[in-house]
Design a protein around this nucleic acid. Structure first.
Lengths: 345, 345
DNA sequence: TTGTAGGCGTTATCAA
DNA sequence: TTGATAACGCCTACAA
């Protein structure tokens, strides 16, 4: 009943050769006669021989697989990044092992521990909203595990990083709202410990200042769980709507926050943008399809995935230690669309 | 510079014991003295010993990983299913290796070959739109690789399957359009070789018939690539709009087709539902957030993932061959909402 | 040109 | 209670 695959040993026995001869023949070594090679290759093909990757891994100390930690796959941005990761990885013959932190620090630590201990050759990670301390990753990095960060990065580890131009995106999104005539613009964003939170907040603030508007700290609400807990977002929105003067527009900092906010507004029977303006920051290409009622700032998520993977594989396969690390900032591609959501239920 | 992990051998040398003693002590064998166990475990913990999973795999012939083949991760339905798969797998200590067929038969074959050959203990798959022949999977199944199908299944392989109640979902979606007063309801669907295509078409047809409407074959358009090629969908929509009488509503059979159609209608400046009715079939929970202009039929995608994974792990870990296979049909949870998309650009 | 032997890290069997 | 040995499948000095 077990899945019996053919091995080098089987070929050797069948052809009355030694395993090393077969091994060499299979890899086309020049120290094997053409005749023997022909025989071995023919037999291998005929019996559909495939080297056992696990044995190869054990031998070479490389698993030909890369680990990925994201907070949640079921999120347009991350699934697009993973799409990019998978495409490049497959092309270079690496397996992709996916794990989710669900925005939990503990799960992030557990997943990183699990993925290391020799089972992956490298790690691609975007930090969880809860993560304030990256010692677990520093440890792995010091042990020599190649790591590439994307989107939610840390400055504490010297390695490659790929991010979007969060400042510029947030600046342009906010400026767009201002140009639409909104004056009291609120900001719903993620955990204060995330790199993206600060960068986007700075863009938001600068746009207000450049327009002569005074950023009011009461108008910025943090969601420590990055919107994973809807109640948190509901609370933030409710508090904003009770302020005086009431905000006339909202700049939401992520896909999850945007969609949750949109959904809450719908339940509250508040039309966008007739009653309140809404712009969402997004890194997701298809966002313009999925968010027909949002104005969005679009970033190439797919490219983040492909780039990160190329950099990681480069790290893995470089014989000599890499000393210079890149921090790649993908440029904002502002895409404004003003469809609106009419509420009629 | 290499990642040097501590091994059993290191512990044995340090404690002046044999590797087999250490191995047994680590697994708490009762044939080892308490004193020795204490020593070994203390040393192991102190030096953060982790067994090398690759060596264990080689030894046991099990990799503790499951392969997944979907057409595209960057698709709400599949990313939600994978979310479910990953959750259950992690809980049971399995790695999840993701691959995408991109709706290509060739890539599906290549991925399945790659994932088998001992690198995964089981396979969870949803067929590509191009796949007409499943010999590649029959081969793996016969070799003893446990397989579970979800959503896009085949009847040719006797194993567990998890699907949605496609007939009922399509029936209700179509009936809803009829109740809204639409009479010329078109249907844009996927490849004719997919199981879901037929099932959803039957539901659509039955709803029309039950309402005394005559299904017109010209009103059903197939997209052989499941909407992966936008041009295909554009063509289908264009042809539909040229028919006489022109359809007054469309029932789209999948997320990708729904969003593409919505996007095309927007470009054509055709409002939904003022100028044309639109209902999309979806298995995706968050669809009601993402498709504010669509009426949707909601299915528990997450549950498809968790269920499939539980069934697969059951197959993998069952000592005796499983003889009875389940075909689980998850029930439709119809969720109607009639927000509308006003076009103003 | 081919074969022998040892090892990658772990586990299982059998002997001490 | 512990240890020596072989084995999982593959690779590679080194010998023949």
């Amino acid at each position: 009943m077990k899945f019996e695959a053919i091995t080098i040993k089987d070929i050797a026995r069948a052809l009355d050769l030694s395993v090393s001869t077969v091994s060499k023949a299979l890899r086309g070594s020049h120290e094997i006669s053409d005749e023997t090679k022909r025989l071995v290759l023919a037999y291998a093909r005929e019996h559909n021989y495939k080297p056992n990757p696990i044995a190869q891994s054990l031998k070479k100390g490389l698993s030909k697989s890369i680990g990925v930690i994201v907070c949640n796959i079921d999120n347009n941005f991350f699934s697009q990044v993973i799409n990019g990761i998978e495409s490049v990885a497959r092309q270079k013959d690496y397996n992709v092992i996916i794990t989710q932190s669900q925005e939990s620090y503990e799960r992030e630590v557990a997943n990183s521990e699990h993925l290391s201990s020799r089972s992956v050759d490298g790690l691609i990670i975007s930090l969880s909203a809860e993560t304030k301390n990256v010692d677990h990753l520093i440890r792995l990095h010091q042990k020599g595990l190649p790591i590439v960060f994307f989107d939610r990065i840390t400055d504490e580890i010297p390695t490659h990083k790929v991010i979007a131009n969060n400042f510029k995106g947030a600046y342009e999104a906010t400026r767009h709202l201002i140009q639409q005539g909104f004056r009291h613009i609120a900001h719903i964003t993620s955990s204060s410990s995330l790199s993206i939170t600060l960068e986007r907040f700075e863009g938001y603030k600068k746009a207000l200042e450049d327009a002569g508007l005074k950023p009011d700290p009461r108008y910025t609400k943090l969601c420590q769980h990055g919107g994973m807990i809807p109640e948190e977002t509901r609370q933030a929105l409710t508090e904003l709507l009770q302020l005086n003067p009431q905000p006339d527009a909202i700049f939401t900092a992520s896909d999850r926050l945007s969609t949750t906010t949109l959904s809450l507004l719908r339940k509250m029977q508040i039309s966008v943008p007739d009653q309140i303006g809404l712009v969402g920051f997004t890194n997701s290409i298809s966002a313009d399809i999925f968010h027909p009622a949002l104005t969005s700032v679009v970033q190439p998520a797919l490219e983040m995935g492909t780039l990160s993977t190329e950099l990681l594989i480069q790290l893995i396969e470089s014989k000599r230690p890499v000393t210079e690390f890149k921090k790649i900032i993908l440029e904002t591609d502002l895409k404004i669309r003003d469809s609106s959501l009419r509420i009629n239920q």
